[in-house]
Simulated assay, not measured.
Amino acid sequence: MITTEIPIVFDGHNDVLLKLYQAGGVSAAESFLSGRDGAIDCLSAKAGGFGGGFFAVYVPSPQDLEFKFDQMTQAAYDLPLPDPIDWQDAFPVVMAQAAILFDLEKRGALTICRSVADIRAALAQGRMAAIFHIEGAEGIDADLNALELLYRAGLRSLGPVWSRPTIFGHGVPFRFPSTADTGPGLTEHGINLVKRCNELGIMIDLSHLNEAGFWDVARLSSAPLVATHSNAHAICPHSRNLTDKQLAAIRESDGMVGLNFAVAFLRDDGRMISDVPLTQLLRHLDHLIDHLGEDRVGLGSDYDGAVVPSDLTTCGGLPKLRQAMAGHGYGEALITKLCHENWLRVLEKTWGG
């Protein structure tokens, strides 16, 4: 159970399911309860007041991670995008990671939440609240049959792309310095996906989507615009970050941005080096609050999927961030909004309850 100081953190993005999948799948799930070499598990959550969040299902590409990490420590970089992944290859991986999430619920480690009422109930009971999220829709077919199946299994949030292209649209490369204006927008399949997600009440995640795709979703979607784990381009001019014009559109839609802890998207120089002070996160938070308002900003850590500041290597370190917020002059009400209430607000508006 999570028994730590309020406000607890409900987080916009983590990749712990991928890490457990790579460690052996369902057989590795026990480490989530007993302690694992990673950013999130039950022990760290209890220590840090981590109440849950968006648990991403992500289909990895074969890639040289050592080369990627080395390149992203340079002053400038432009990494080639991995090749697309066919639906037939991606779908079994999606099922395997979803099975890990269901197994964690069976073990009592978390509750898969399909409504804001579910989230509030789980948090009140001290149980980790998990949203079944997909990062990159490679596992969804053009006819959207898999989307219907996954929705009934509990899927409530989806990013049409990771950085590589899908049949639905195009993501941004890992490029610095750069804007997100890197290619064409949504395909016809992508347009259909957005419309069906709106009908089902599945939240659409704009993180990783390129700028043309962002504006296509803004034009098409009837739901608030949400980027679960993105930062301010005005501070860090990385292709993954959001311009002030994009922030204005998110604000107009009454949407939401979750602050990404990934150091390459935090640092002014875009380098993937972990010696990032918490004041740098506060700079991004200040900018996001200035452009979005206090009700539309939260946290989207990217835990277990990114290099993060050395003070925040696990969710057990989250009290340091809350203390930094208070020391920066954020009041208790604002800290509570940033930690979880803003996510619940935008989900209630998107899901309808």
Results as ranks from 00 to 15, higher is better:
residue 269 D to T: 06
residue 37 D to W: 04
residue 178 S to V: 08
residue 121 A to C: 07
residue 39 A to G: 14
residue 263 V to F: 04
residue 34 S to A: 15
residue 186 L to Y: 11
residue 75 A to M: 03
residue 265 F to N: 08
residue 66 E to R: 13
residue 341 E to M: 05
residue 221 S to I: 06
residue 228 T to P: 08
residue 345 R to L: 04
residue 230 S to E: 08
residue 116 V to F: 04
residue 145 N to Y: 01
residue 202 I to A: 11
residue 78 D to R: 11
residue 79 L to Y: 07
residue 62 P to W: 12
residue 85 I to R: 03
residue 298 G to N: 04
residue 255 G to T: 06
residue 116 V to K: 03
residue 144 L to Y: 07
residue 127 R to H: 15
residue 2 I to G: 05
residue 129 A to M: 11
residue 302 D to V: 02
residue 125 Q to L: 10
residue 185 G to A: 11
residue 297 V to C: 12
residue 111 T to M: 06
residue 240 R to V: 13
residue 8 I to F: 01
residue 57 V to D: 03
residue 70 D to I: 00
residue 248 A to T: 12
residue 338 L to N: 04
residue 318 L to Q: 09
residue 55 F to K: 02
residue 266 L to G: 03
residue 346 V to H: 03
residue 225 L to E: 09
residue 322 R to Y: 12
residue 54 F to Q: 13
residue 87 W to A: 06
residue 162 W to D: 02
residue 128 M to S: 05
residue 30 E to F: 00
residue 92 P to G: 04
residue 166 T to D: 07
residue 91 F to V: 14
residue 87 W to G: 00
residue 60 P to Y: 08
residue 54 F to G: 02
residue 164 R to N: 15
residue 23 A to Q: 14
residue 239 S to D: 09
residue 344 L to R: 05
residue 239 S to I: 10
residue 71 Q to A: 15
residue 104 L to D: 08
residue 262 A to N: 01
residue 167 I to F: 00
residue 309 P to Y: 06
residue 43 L to V: 15
residue 350 T to N: 03
residue 259 L to K: 03
residue 35 G to Q: 09
residue 228 T to N: 10
residue 4 T to Y: 03
residue 202 I to F: 12
residue 177 P to Q: 04
residue 133 H to Q: 15
residue 78 D to K: 05
residue 244 D to C: 01
residue 322 R to S: 12
residue 233 H to R: 14
residue 19 K to G: 07
residue 255 G to I: 07
residue 246 Q to I: 05
